[in-house]
Write a protein that binds this DNA or RNA. Structure first.
Length: 353
DNA sequence: ACTAGCTGCTCC
DNA sequence: TTTCAGA
DNA sequence: TCTGAAAGAGCAGCTAGT
């Protein structure tokens, strides 16, 4: 592989105007490149499998960053940023152009784009407005700056490092000596601490979890490899079922999602919906339990957003269940919720937020 | 002409 | 992203 | 074991209705 050209777009969106008299055709075109010729250097990100903390020697532990995965291609004063889906985000995050000033050698880096909250923790919710803004205004850049956390080095001086073990790639990354810069960071990896210790540090600092990486592993582009194991910090929450929505497709005829609440002194606060984690028996059991609880109006003290409430069936809020989730969103919704099951031993008054 | 409500897109 | 179910 | 389909959240832009 050479770094003769930076990889380009996988897709492009075009708007075409045909004819002079208002004959407008708007269409979306997909340009599929011939990979071998146009994009010789596209390196798809290696992915981690979900699992438990590995024990014993041979592993490094990194923090799991709550942001957007991005590979960057740097050569001279040129930079290309590609997301996990090979979409071009070079303009979306102009902060990353600092890389061209910090690197004197052509390189391909792997890392995570993050937006820090006031406590200095990467926070995906803060990043949302940046993700969707291809040409951010100065105001947005000031309000929500991003940083690039570089955790791997895939290509340097036109030479691939994919076959090198993790330890070598990480040393080579350190040897780049990226100077301290507010927009570019090289986060730590821990090779002499037990995974549990790193995990508890992550928990203490409100981080998302840890990723364990085998010290001797090569970089497997585009593969979900057991050489990388992600261990998110999972939280559980007891919730009250306040409604449900019918499923579609394979789930038509049964429940698609449950609408959840958390009791507060002033009433049941809406906490979002959960649509995964059910087995088929769970769904049919829930259906028969929810049916007799039907009521015409939402049981929540606050307004349920219309797109959540669409097609919803409301129930008396008496059934308690448990969900696993990652974090709360700023407006009090569960992020990445997954249904664990009913808690018939509990009543809504037992729940603490 | 305005706006609520869709749909589609992007990410986790 | 996570999870389940079917091939 | 792999693949497809269900689900979450937020934003931009189009559309249909007033």
């Amino acid at each position: 592989m050479s770094l003769a050209e930076l990889p380009g777009l996988r897709r492009a969106w075009l708007r075409v105007t045909l004819g002079g008299q208002g004959a407008v055709y708007k269409g979306r075109f997909t340009l599929t490149p011939q990979r071998s010729h146009e994009f010789p250097d596209l390196i798809r990100p290696m992915l981690a499998v979900l699992g438990d903390l590995p024990q014993g020697p041979g592993w490094a532990f990194e923090f799991k960053w709550d942001g957007v995965r991005a590979t960057t291609y740097v050569r001279d004063d040129r930079l290309r940023v590609l997301t996990r889906n090979d979409l071009d985000a070079s303009r979306t995050y102009p902060e990353l152009h600092a890389l061209t000033g910090l690197l004197t050698r052509p390189a391909v880096l792997d890392g995570e784009i993050v937006a820090l909250d006031p406590e200095g923790r990467p926070n995906f919710s803060r990043l949302q407005s940046r993700i969707h803004t291809r040409r951010p205004t100065d105001d947005l850049l000031r309000r929500i700056p991003v940083s690039y956390y570089v955790f791997d080095l895939l290509h340097l001086d036109g030479r691939s490092l994919l076959g090198e073990p993790y330890t070598h790639r990480r040393e080579a990354l350190a040897d780049l000596d990226l100077p301290a810069h507010p927009s570019i960071r090289v986060p730590p990896c821990f090779t002499d601490l037990p995974g549990e210790t790193v995990q508890s540090i992550a928990a203490d600092h409100g981080l998302e979890g840890v990723v364990a990486k085998r010290l001797d592993s090569r970089y497997d582009p585009g593969r979900r490899s057991p050489s990388w194991i992600k261990v998110p910090l999972i939280r559980t929450q007891e919730v009250v079922i306040g409604g449900w929505r019918p499923g579609e497709g394979r789930r038509s005829g049964t429940i698609g999602a449950l609408l959840l609440g958390v009791p507060t002194p002033s009433g049941l606060r809406y906490a979002g919906k959960v649509g995964t984690g059910f087995t088929a028996p769970m769904l049919s059991d829930l259906q028969s339990r929810l049916h007799p609880l039907h009521r015409p109006t939402p049981p929540f003290k606050d307004e349920v957003p219309t797109d959540h409430a669409r097609n919803a069936h409301w129930v008396n809020p008496v059934l308690v269940g448990e969900v696993q989730f990652r974090t709360w969103t700023p407006d009090g919704r569960l992020r990445h919720p997954s249904w664990r099951g009913l808690r018939p031993d509990k009543s809504p008054s037992d729940i603490t937020a």
